[in-house]
Amino acid sequence: MNYRKLGKTGFNVSEISLGTWQVGGKWGEPFSHTNADQILNQAVDAGINFIDTADVYGDGESEKAVGRLLRSRQERIYVATKCGRRLRPHTNETYQPDVLRKFVEDSLRNMELETLDLIQLHCPPTDVYYRPEIFELFDRLKEEGKIQHLGVSVEKVEEALKAIEFPNVTTVQIIFNMFRQRPAELFFTEAKRRDIGVIVRVPLASGLLTGTYSPTTEFSPTDHRNFNREGAAFDKGETFSGVEYETGLAAVEELRSIYPDVQNLAPDALRWILTFDAVSCIIPGASKPSHLASNLKALKQPAPSHQQMAAVKQIYDERIKNPVHYLW
């Protein structure tokens, strides 16, 4: 495993880390603690030392599984969780310091911890980034010993740039992959200048970039890749990175010419992300151990050549950029 510094947190975290949205089962399926325990322990066995979770994953069950892992292992494992998505409705007005404080305390109870390594606002509405009182709350929580660091998970580059103006924001979690390249422009430059840790989520565009999907692939009715393609439940950028499914499939076919004779494109797609030195770590998810094994293969992939990087950029510019780039 290779490690990088997570910005001004000072944490040295595994380049390939683990996101736990679906660690207890595929999207929409009941949470399985047996499955979660297996994946989490195999991740740590492989050298992963950074795990991202949230209070809404499995309605708190993901946090409980992560807490159980921490109690059963001797390794130093950094845990990031998130708060805010439990709000109903999820609006600027419902974001209030006292409610967010309760969410943080609930996460501490779920994981049986006294202090959270990193708490992240969970993709709040854009207006929240213009409210200093929300960010000031986390200074108080740090003084009380309940958190070590504050980060944000964002939908838009605009939100990331606004968030890092607050001095107590240490990390930004953002969607970045071959089909979502805008963060590599101004945001990465500013993140490096301000020593912000960059956590990359949705690195495989909800599985599109594995190259294993086809026009006949069926997704469960409870899977967001089925019901959220137009943003019916949450920001559609979380589903296939906002790329229209058929457009994504066509782009993947072009990627195959760049990576010939590769059945599973995931390791190369993850390795492409790691070529950007602003990135601290990637948090691909896994609903089974084989997904984790596939993700870890990225560490053994050669860096893409200049020709491959240029070819990926050309596919993005020609097929993806116009409908996606300017929305997020």
Rank of each mutant, 00 (worst) to 15 (best):
A65C: 08
I119A: 01
R85Q: 14
D106V: 14
D45I: 02
V104A: 05
T91Y: 00
K64E: 05
R85W: 04
R68Y: 01
V79S: 08
D37G: 02
Y130Q: 13
V44C: 08
G84E: 04
K26T: 05
P125W: 06
P125N: 08
G84T: 04
Y129L: 07
T91I: 02
I39N: 06
D55N: 13
Q96M: 02
L121H: 06
V104Q: 08
G24K: 11
G25H: 14
I39K: 13
D127L: 15
T94R: 00
Y57N: 10
L69I: 08
E105D: 10
E112Y: 11
N110L: 11
T20V: 10
V128Q: 02
I51R: 03
T94V: 00
V104M: 00
R109L: 11
Q38M: 09
N49T: 08
V66K: 05
E112K: 11
L116G: 06
D127P: 09
L69G: 09
V66I: 09
L69T: 11
L70W: 05
N92V: 09
V128K: 07
P30E: 10
C83S: 08
D59G: 12
R71N: 14
G28K: 07
E136S: 15
T91L: 00
E75F: 05
R76L: 11
L137A: 06
E133A: 12
R68K: 13
F138S: 14
A36E: 11
D127Y: 03
R71K: 15
Q74P: 01
C83N: 04
V79F: 12
L137R: 10
R101T: 04
L100I: 00
V99E: 03
L40Y: 13
N35F: 04
P30R: 10
L118P: 00
P132T: 04
T126S: 10
V66L: 11
E114H: 11
A65E: 13
Y78C: 10
Y95I: 02
Y95D: 03
D127K: 11
I119L: 09
L108K: 09
V44N: 13
C83I: 14
V128H: 07
R76C: 06
R131V: 10
G28Q: 04
V66R: 05
Q38L: 15
K82G: 09
E29M: 08
N92Y: 02
R131A: 03
T94H: 06
T94M: 06
N92H: 05
H90K: 13
N41D: 10
S107M: 02
